[in-house]
Amino acid sequence: MELKKNLAISDTGFVFDANSGESYSLNPIGLEILNYLKQGLKDDEIREKIMEKYDVDASTFDLVYFDFIRTLQQFDLFEKS
């Protein structure tokens, strides 16, 4: 899955979807993950990067990560494949 191209992500965690006109706010880890997604990283790579930096095990991460992805889908932030 690929993030929408015209998504403007600012360092403060503010996201503007130029396509829908909606704006969003992210917490710091949410911002980090969204940036990885924008760079095109795969789920496994993102997990690895987050686990390297933060104190979290793989199953906990997966649980919240896929919930986060589902929320992004709900907000329609991925390109339609």
Partner: peptide, 11 residues
């Protein structure tokens, strides 16, 4: 300015 909107809503 969208930037003002960003500031008030984020900070």
């Amino acid at each position: 300015d969208l930037d003002d909107f960003q500031k008030i809503s984020m900070n």
